[in-house]
Lab assay of single mutants.
Amino acid sequence: QIFVKTLTGKTITLEVEPSDTIENVKAKIQDKEGIPPDQQRLIFAGKQLEDGRTLSDYNIQKESTLHLVL
């Protein structure tokens, strides 16, 4: 699982696999929060994550925290 922290300070927990794409993660966030993926920007280690890449591409491991910017 990974954590996604929103600007409001809320933390969302997501069940993911390293092979999941960023697009996939955004879809999971939409399921939980109702935020359309095209409004979501995910930041990890100061980098904006691209939809077509996977979590493992960015070396995002379990218990990692991503930041969600709208």
Results as ranks from 00 to 15, higher is better:
1 Q>M: 13
1 Q>L: 15
1 Q>F: 15
1 Q>T: 14
1 Q>H: 15
1 Q>Y: 14
2 I>N: 01
3 F>Y: 14
3 F>S: 05
4 V>T: 01
4 V>I: 14
4 V>M: 02
5 K>F: 06
5 K>C: 14
6 T>I: 13
7 L>G: 15
8 T>R: 09
8 T>F: 13
8 T>V: 08
9 G>S: 04
9 G>D: 05
9 G>C: 08
10 K>F: 09
10 K>Y: 12
11 T>K: 07
11 T>W: 08
12 I>D: 01
13 T>R: 06
13 T>C: 11
13 T>L: 09
13 T>N: 06
13 T>H: 07
13 T>P: 06
14 L>I: 13
14 L>S: 01
15 E>C: 15
15 E>N: 12
16 V>I: 10
17 E>N: 12
17 E>S: 12
17 E>M: 10
18 P>H: 07
18 P>L: 14
19 S>D: 12
19 S>R: 07
21 T>K: 09
22 I>W: 02
22 I>L: 05
22 I>H: 01
23 E>H: 11
24 N>Y: 13
24 N>V: 14
25 V>G: 00
25 V>M: 05
26 K>M: 05
26 K>Y: 03
26 K>E: 01
27 A>Y: 13
28 K>F: 05
28 K>C: 05
29 I>N: 00
29 I>L: 07
29 I>Y: 02
30 Q>F: 14
31 D>K: 12
31 D>M: 12
31 D>T: 10
32 K>C: 11
33 E>T: 13
33 E>P: 01
33 E>F: 11
35 I>T: 07
36 P>H: 11
36 P>W: 06
36 P>V: 05
37 P>R: 13
37 P>H: 10
38 D>N: 11
38 D>Q: 12
39 Q>N: 11
40 Q>L: 06
40 Q>G: 03
40 Q>E: 02
40 Q>Y: 14
41 R>C: 15
41 R>L: 12
41 R>A: 08
42 L>G: 00
42 L>P: 01
43 I>R: 06
43 I>K: 06
44 F>E: 02
44 F>W: 08
44 F>Q: 03
44 F>T: 02
44 F>L: 05
44 F>V: 04
45 A>L: 13
45 A>K: 14
46 G>V: 02
46 G>D: 08
47 K>P: 02
47 K>M: 15
48 Q>E: 15
48 Q>K: 08
49 L>Q: 00
49 L>I: 04
50 E>V: 08
51 D>H: 06
51 D>A: 07
52 G>H: 13
52 G>F: 13
52 G>P: 07
53 R>S: 07
53 R>P: 05
54 T>S: 09
56 S>T: 09
56 S>E: 13
57 D>P: 00
57 D>C: 04
57 D>T: 04
57 D>A: 05
58 Y>W: 02
58 Y>P: 00
61 Q>A: 11
61 Q>W: 07
61 Q>G: 12
61 Q>M: 10
62 K>P: 15
62 K>G: 15
62 K>S: 15
63 E>P: 03
63 E>L: 10
63 E>N: 13
64 S>Q: 08
65 T>S: 05
65 T>V: 13
66 L>V: 09
66 L>S: 01
67 H>W: 11
68 L>W: 02
69 V>A: 09
69 V>P: 01
69 V>T: 10
69 V>Y: 14
70 L>R: 08
70 L>N: 09
70 L>T: 12
